[in-house]
Design a protein around this nucleic acid. Structure first.
Length: 586
RNA sequence: GGACGUGUGGCCUAGUGGACCAAGGCGGGAGGUUCCUAACCUCCAGAGCGUGGGUUCGAAUCCCAUCACGUCCGCCA
């Protein structure tokens, strides 16, 4: 209903301004502060005051005067308040919102008949996923969820960098060394933890090994790269053996979040199918193409990028950016829009990619690049090659284990007599622990850097996933106690007339607009901010308005029960957008 | 050195032109449970939004300068 009221308010302000002979380009529609009764307000009066030659409050009064509330279903009244025009909702607004939110799909917007591919994570298959990279799948998955809720047809892709020098080094190391050459046991019993040791050993040898050994290695690494470039089947299989195993392990780790993908697009596919070669030809034909130092490059200085983009090495082989261009054109061919989630260290490359795609004749409006800053450790950065950093698996294990301690600690002084089973304890520990990690990361503005601290990330109180999850569990507790849904079809929303009930219902009503904003701006953290407000409103309602107490009449009980169900759908689905599980008990 | 980004109570975070003489959490202090789960709630103390200018009727939000921190500036990915 909120989206409908917003349309009504826009129409009302536009009509009023037109009637007054004033410009309608900026309607100044905004959400009023908490202590104002209106659902929406307009601040046009500020801007028009100069033109009209009257103070803002006077203009606001004129505008409000011209609004005919009878024309609208949900706007009951437009009242001037100082320089603002406030739009008050009618009873039907609350009644229809309550009704709409009884649907378990509440928050899903109308299908848009438009496809979007969301590429995220795309970490090189060199070893275990570490916390520094964890922001990518967590933000990426939430962005994809938000677009899905907003009605887009979403595909989630992981672009596999299986053709670069890193993978040639890895393949050489994997084939050259054996267990006896490695000085440590795997940190965990999973394939990528086993194999990353070969990669690290290989890099160590290349950096400080015997010169003859290094030279022989370089010859082998170069031959692997040339084999890939030539589309040699045998080389491809040698590299794949490493890539597929490591990637398999990384996928298992990501599934714990859970972040799952519809497609793993491999870089080598765009070499094998000839699209990279074809792209090189087109790049060479561009005005910006230059041949310097035996390598083909693009001089993008005229487009605001002072760093040349090398797209063909002097030995004639392609580079990562060249293949990524082919990859993006493939995305444009198959989807209406493309969204890529990347770390800020890829910003320059992202700009080069976008500019070059434009030069190649693509409409880059359909490409959106979401950049996020790094997650650092208090003591410094994280690197797979050097083996520094915190593995995501370790973080998730620690989170679940701390959550379990909390659950067990609370078991003794639990009022509710619902006998949690061992399975419940396992389930809650997992939902709360992993939820806390995801929520902590997804709730922050992507542009801001995060310093990872165990205690802060795993604080289960305050502004955290468990705080919000608890609200969902409380809703479920009440509904369960009441035996499910409210009993009557024709609910009387008018009975919900305390400020606590109204505030909660109004907050529930905003959820679809929050989904819309998160999807439009590709900023899932606004959903996290919303869940906190919603949780606060629910807790105030919970404290002040008993649902199942003896003194509550049948009609009021049903109305409140319906409000609880509405809140459950809003909070549960908001958490779903964030990729955080909503426990039914905890 | 250059480009880009960030800078809000002791700490962390929201707000990015208008009802803000700035909101929430952590930490500190004081309280609340015969009642649908206290992973909850209430109250108190604490910042004027890095610093200095400017634009505007109005600036935490826009512009300029400056400082600090981060990222990038490979024929790596």
């Amino acid at each position: 209903m909120f989206l409908t009221v917003r349309e009504e308010v826009e129409a009302a302000v536009e009509e009023a301004l037109a009637a007054l002979g004033l410009p309608t380009d900026d309607l100044g529609i905004e959400e009023p502060p908490e202590d104002v009764d209106a659902v929406l307000a307009s601040s046009v009066a500020f801007r028009l005051a100069g033109e009209v030659g009257a103070p803002p409050p006077e203009v606001a009064a004129d505008v409000a005067e011209r609004v005919d509330a009878d024309e609208y279903d949900y706007v009951a009244e437009a009242v001037p308040q100082g320089p603002y025009v406030n739009f008050l909702p009618g009873d039907r607004y609350f009644a229809d919102t309550l009704d709409e939110a009884q649907d378990a799909d509440y928050g899903h917007l109308e299908p848009k008949d438009s496809s979007v591919v969301v590429e995220h994570t795309s970490a090189n298959p060199t070893g275990p996923v570490h916390v520094g990279r964890a922001r990518n799948p967590i933000v990426g998955d939430a962005v994809a969820n938000a677009l899905d809720y907003a009605g887009y047809d979403v595909s989630r892709h992981y672009y596999v960098n299986d053709a670069g020098r890193q993978m040639a080094v890895f393949t050489w190391a994997y084939e050259t060394f054996d267990e006896a050459d490695l000085d440590a046991d795997p940190e965990r019993d999973r394939i990528e933890y086993d194999l990353v040791r070969y990669y690290r050993e290989g890099n160590a040898v290349l950096e400080e090994g015997d010169p003859d050994e290094v030279e022989a290695a370089e010859v082998e690494i170069e031959s692997i790269m040339r084999g890939l470039e030539a589309g040699d089947e045998e080389t491809y299989e040698r590299v794949s053996e490493v890539v597929d195993q490591v990637l398999g392990g990384m996928r298992e780790c990501l599934e714990r979040l859970p972040a799952e993908f519809d497609e793993f697009a491999k870089e080598t596919e765009f070499m094998v199918d000839g699209s990279t070669d074809e792209l090189v030809d087109r790049l060479q034909g561009l005005d910006e193409a230059v041949y310097e130092g035996d390598a083909w490059q693009l001089d993008l200085e005229g487009h605001g990028i002072d760093k040349n983009l090398v797209f063909l090495r002097s030995d004639g082989t392609s580079l990562y950016p060249t293949r990524d261009l082919a990859h993006h054109e493939w995305k444009f061919d198959n989807y209406d829009r493309a969204v890529t989630v990347l770390g800020e260290d890829h910003k320059l490359q992202a700009e080069q990619l976008r500019t070059t795609l434009e030069l190649l004749g693509n409409d880059t409006d359909q490409l959106r690049q979401v950049l996020y800053s790094y997650v650092n450790l208090p003591e410094g950065g994280m690197s797979t090659r050097e083996g520094t950093g915190v593995d995501l698996d370790d973080l998730l294990d620690e989170a679940v284990s701390r959550a379990r301690e909390e659950v067990e600690k609370r078991l003794d002084d639990r009022i509710r007599d619902d006998d949690l089973t061992d399975e419940d304890v396992d389930r809650i520990a997992r939902q709360v622990g992993i939820g806390a990690v995801r929520y902590d990361i997804v709730s922050k503005q992507p542009a801001k850097a995060i310093t990872f601290e165990w205690d802060r990330a795993l604080d289960f109180e305050a502004q955290s996933a468990p705080y919000v999850q608890y609200v969902h569990a409380r809703c479920c507790g009440i509904l369960d106690e009441a035996g499910g849904r409210p009993t009557v079809d024709d609910l009387d929303a008018d009975l919900l007339d305390t400020e606590y009930e109204r505030d909660l219902l109004r907050t529930v009503a905003r959820f679809p607009a929050v989904v819309e904003e998160a999807a439009e701006d590709l900023e899932p953290h606004v959903v996290a901010t919303y869940t906190r407000t919603l949780a606060e409103r629910f807790n105030a309602f919970y404290r002040e308005c008993p649902v199942l107490a003896d003194g509550v009449g049948d009609d009021l009980r049903d109305a409140r029960l319906a409000l609880v169900l509405a809140a459950r759908h809003a909070v549960g689905n908001a958490l779903d957008v964030l990729g955080v599980e909503a426990p039914e008990s905890m």
